[in-house]
């Protein structure tokens, strides 16, 4: 699927033809919120108004639903795909390291920043996940790590289900981390360098997949997510 462009769209009828699902199923999944409202994109075409979907996302989602719908009820599936379901995840320090979700160095920085704790909820995990990513990419130093953790701790839980975006920018050696609550275009002056830009929702998905994968490895079940 890596061949498709990120924002390529697929028309509803092509989607149904390609995946073999019916109109009834599609609408049922929409009602159960297995497919987010935001993925239904309306466009005017020469045959009237038609609905399109983000191709990569919808194909992956339809595949996941089709694979899991025999073992889970639609309500259970809805829970799984809901952006809120992740908030129930809590991991201990050992689980975190054993499962290779973040590195030891990241965990140390996180613990220096916040209170001493041994169990981490999803907000903490997400913050560490982003931090880990940026530290590993060599984009961020430890002082900046505090800025990142600060903004994530304060705000990320408010914007899980939105299309929000995390920015890390630097100008003349001064760095800044902020979150835009929507995926909007931002225009900076020439001196500003955007060092990293991460969609929060993508981070949530990636972390969820990472946690699910490691839990599955433990119970040696087949991989269903990716």
């Amino acid at each position: 699927m890596g061949l498709y462009m990120e924002d390529e769209l697929i028309a509803k009828k092509d989607l149904l033809e390609m995946t073999g699902i019916s109109y009834g199923q599609l609408y049922r999944w929409k009602r159960k919120q297995l497919i987010p409202e935001a993925w239904f994109i309306r466009k005017a075409t020469f045959t009237g108004q038609e609905t399109f979907f983000p191709k990569v996302k919808i194909l992956k989602r339809v595949q996941s639903i089709s694979e899991m719908k025999d073992t889970l009820s639609l309500d259970e599936l809805a829970e799984r795909f809901s952006p809120q379901s992740v908030t129930k995840i809590v991991l201990s320090e050992t689980e975190l390291l054993d499962r290779n979700i973040v590195s030891n160095a990241t965990l140390t920085i996180f613990k220096e920043f916040g209170s001493v704790q041994h169990r981490f909820d999803f907000h903490d995990l997400l913050a560490m996940f982003f931090l880990d990513h940026m530290l590993k990419a060599g984009q961020m130093n430890r002082a900046e790590a505090n800025d990142l953790l600060n903004v994530l701790k304060e705000s990320s839980h408010k914007i899980y289900d939105k299309n929000s975006c995390l920015y890390f920018i630097r100008k003349m050696g001064v760095s800044m981390v902020f979150i835009a609550a929507d995926d909007v275009a931002l225009y900076f002056d020439d001196g500003v360098k955007v060092i990293d830009k991460q969609l929060i929702s993508a981070g949530v998905e990636a972390l969820k997949a990472c946690i699910e994968k490691s839990s599955r490895d433990e119970i040696s079940k087949e991989d269903v997510q990716s």
Partner: peptide, 16 residues
């Protein structure tokens, strides 16, 4: 405007 479904049975209906 539009009607989509698996099984559709219509009477006295105007649709594009």
């Amino acid at each position: 405007d539009t009607i989509e479904g698996d099984t559709i049975v219509l009477e006295d209906t105007e649709a594009k």
